[in-house]
Design a protein around this nucleic acid. Structure first.
Length: 680
DNA sequence: GAAATCATACTTTTT
DNA sequence: GTATGATTTC
């Protein structure tokens, strides 16, 4: 167990800072978590009650771990401290204070998929039956529903008008602007009627709470200290929230590293961290001593990031014992890459590095599929983080919607989905019944009335659903586990009849039942599930046996904040890293560079970057605005000088910058008005 | 109006 | 390769 006195001087300065707001620029591996822990310890020891501390982190797990470590370090309880993601904290605040702006505490939260589904639903409602006459012209394809959700979210999170977002981020949808705009308006209205919030609403409404004068005073007096982790990955809306939170005199501590900003696709902007000192009048402490990696690895990662434009200049250094330079491994093709990864994995294992101390990092979840086959064939166990979509599996979604109806019978989307599980009911019938049911004050009771037009046998099936909902609700709010069990009596047969490989799906429902039983409270369980979904195969299957050793496969995004002795980064090839979908725009390519930087800086002792020379499928060139056939290489000569096995040529680097700015109004109507103003 | 079939754009990262 | 929407069939 260490003490604050064991920290480096710069870490101590950060931990003990007492004058006003503070920005800690913490380079990769510089002991950010240690410093934050020490700061928490310092605050608690110097008399700040835990419940007057708010920690905004990137995941619930990060918050829990910080509190845990602070508790060990300080020897005092951290119980009562507030912690979680921006969205999770917003959820808690709104359940408690939402009534002040006209929000019932039983609201449900839509995830990104739900948002897309609801947008599709209202878009369908909007299109008149009149569009059918021009039979000759095949109606052109419209933006997919998920794209609509992305557009909406980007408008709201950056505070940019629809036309600008369409122009710069979704040019192929620009000619649909009128329909998109109409869909957004209808979508907003629909959400309000049904008491559902999407992710962005959570932040907007949290902000709206601060516009209620009496409540704002209470909220602003609630915390003495607010700590924000991973500040480089926050968006303008979140920065505004912080400003409102701190208006009552709470001290802000923001921690982050502009070189690791990798969430611009979610509207995060490194401008937040660059502008923080000026905006809040904060002191800056810079951590530059890398405790994680060997000097050779630091030299290589420094060389990679040195070529980035627009950064907080810093030079990381390490005094750890060296273990040799990182390797760039040229592979013949993808199959060769898989073999080589396995070979090196096993080599290090024989040298005494457990598989758990090794990781394979990928740009996109599907990049590891061939490798996973090779691992399986060689009987090397692994777990995979990121990309797993437990919640998006149809049968899981079915169960979640069923539970959502128990909690909020006005949840139209849930009705729409659940009704279609009944044999013989499709989208049409579901829509008709759902709208009938929602027109009444007590939706569940009137289910029979709303479906009276159906043939008799189907009415009976609907009655079965009603019985299920009534009985689940009768179990009370604390019985999430029992509710799942009861719901399964109705859902299981439908799942078996409806989907192939129902065995695995039933097993998933078992798992969901276990999670629900552990959560207890149904409302909390549902909110937690959408705000902090299970992120790995192990979260679902439960931890493997303790003696089991397994290697981790993770997307680079999910690997943020983690570290391993040995790291294998695969597919470091133009088209994969950087991704094809980084459309040749300079800013996006810069983000891909940072992504590679994050991946490489996860390694403590050994680092391998694999680069297949040939792919068996046709590589797709990106939209190529700066010349024919030009490749993006991150391993430029200066970088290659820090690595083994390599040779390459040089590229010019690009530069650019993006605009921002946003504002928040008051009350639900005001929020809606403000958002609607974006749709010009 | 629902289910089945067909055609064709699109294929990332996540709260 | 796959998922969505348009079209045809029942």
């Amino acid at each position: 167990m260490f003490d604050i006195a064991d920290l480096t001087k710069e870490q101590q300065t950060a931990a003990r800072h007492d004058a006003g707001h503070l920005l800690i620029v913490a380079g990769a591996g510089t002991g950010k978590t240690t410093t934050l822990t020490a700061r928490l310890t310092h605050l608690i020891r110097s008399g700040t009650p835990p419940e007057r501390i708010l920690m905004l982190t990137f995941s619930r797990r990060a918050a829990a771990e910080l509190l845990n470590r602070a508790e060990q370090m300080s020897g005092e309880s951290t119980a009562g401290a507030w912690g979680g993601t921006f969205h999770a904290v917003a959820n808690r605040m709104l359940r408690r204070h939402g009534r002040a702006i006209g929000l019932e505490p039983s609201f449900t939260v839509l995830d990104q998929t739900d948002t897309g589904d609801l947008l599709a639903l209202v878009r369908k409602d909007l299109e008149g039956p009149a569009d059918q006459d021009d039979a000759g012209a095949p109606s052109r394809r419209r933006a997919r529903k998920q794209t609509l959700a992305d557009i909406l979210s980007r408008c709201v999170n950056t505070g940019s008008p629809l036309s600008q977002v369409l122009r710069t981020n979704f040019p192929w949808c620009a000619d649909e602007k009128p329909e998109i705009r109409a869909a957004f308006e209808a979508y907003t209205a629909r959400k309000r009627q049904r008491q559902v919030l999407d992710f962005d609403d959570l932040l907007l409404f949290w902000g709206a709470l601060f516009k209620v004068p009496d409540l704002a005073m209470v909220l602003q007096a609630q915390f003495d200290h607010i700590l924000v982790d991973e500040y480089q990955d926050t968006n303008p809306l979140q920065a505004d929230l912080l400003e409102a939170l701190a208006a009552g005199g709470a001290k802000l501590t923001a921690v982050g590293d502009d070189a690791q900003a990798i969430y611009s696709f979610r509207a995060a902007t490194h401008r937040n961290i660059m502008e923080f000192p000026a905006r809040f009048g904060a002191d800056v402490v810079m951590l530059q001593r890398n405790h994680r990696s060997t000097p050779s690895l630091v030299a290589a990662t420094n060389a990679v990031i040195a070529e980035a434009s627009l950064r907080h200049p810093k030079q990381l250094w390490s005094s750890r014992q060296d273990r040799g330079r990182p390797s760039l491994v040229r592979c013949d093709d993808e199959a060769d890459q898989s073999r080589q990864v396995c070979d090196r994995l096993l080599h290090h294992h024989e040298q005494g590095t457990r598989l758990q101390e090794q990781a394979i990092l990928v740009r996109a979840a599907h990049h590891s599929s061939l490798l996973e086959m090779e691992l399986t064939a060689r009987k090397i166990p692994f777990i995979k983080y990121g990309g797993l979509k437990f919640l998006e599996a149809a049968h899981v979604k079915d169960m979640v919607c069923l539970l959502r109806l128990v909690e909020n019978p006005k949840d139209e989307l849930a009705w729409f989905r659940v009704l279609q599980l009944i044999d013989g009911l499709g989208p049409g019938a579901a829509r008709r019944i759902a709208s009938g049911v929602l027109a009444s004050g007590s939706p569940v009771e009137d289910l029979g009335v709303a479906s009276a037009w159906l043939p008799e046998d189907r009415q009976e099936s609907v009655a079965g659903l009603k019985k299920t909902l009534v009985e689940c609700a009768g179990l009370g709010p604390q019985a999430a586990g029992a509710a799942v069990e009861r719901a399964r009596l109705w859902l299981d047969p439908a799942v078996v009849a409806r989907y192939p490989n129902s065995g695995a799906r039933i097993a998933d429902l078992d798992q969901l039942g276990r999670l629900a039983a552990a959560a207890g409270n149904l409302r909390g369980f549902l909110a937690e599930l959408t705000l902090d979904p299970p992120s790995s195969t192990s979260d679902l299957a439960g931890p493997p046996h303790l003696d089991d050793d397994f290697v981790t496969i993770s997307t680079i995004h999910s690997a943020k904040g983690c570290e391993w002795d040995v790291v294998h980064v695969i597919h470091v090839t133009d088209g994969h890293i950087p991704s094809d979908l980084a459309t040749g725009d300079a800013e996006t390519i810069e983000e891909e560079r940072r992504l590679l930087y994050v991946a490489m800086t996860r390694a403590r002792n050994h680092l391998y970057a694999y680069s297949p020379l040939r792919y068996h499928y046709r590589p797709r060139g990106r939209d190529d605005s700066h010349g024919y056939g030009q490749l993006t290489r991150f391993f430029t000569p200066p970088v290659l000088e820090t690595m083994d096995n390599a040779h390459s040529r040089r590229l010019p680097d690009p530069d650019s910058c993006l605009p921002g700015g946003s504002n928040v109004a008051s009350g639900i109507e005001a929020v809606d008005r403000m958002v609607a103003a974006l749709w010009d």
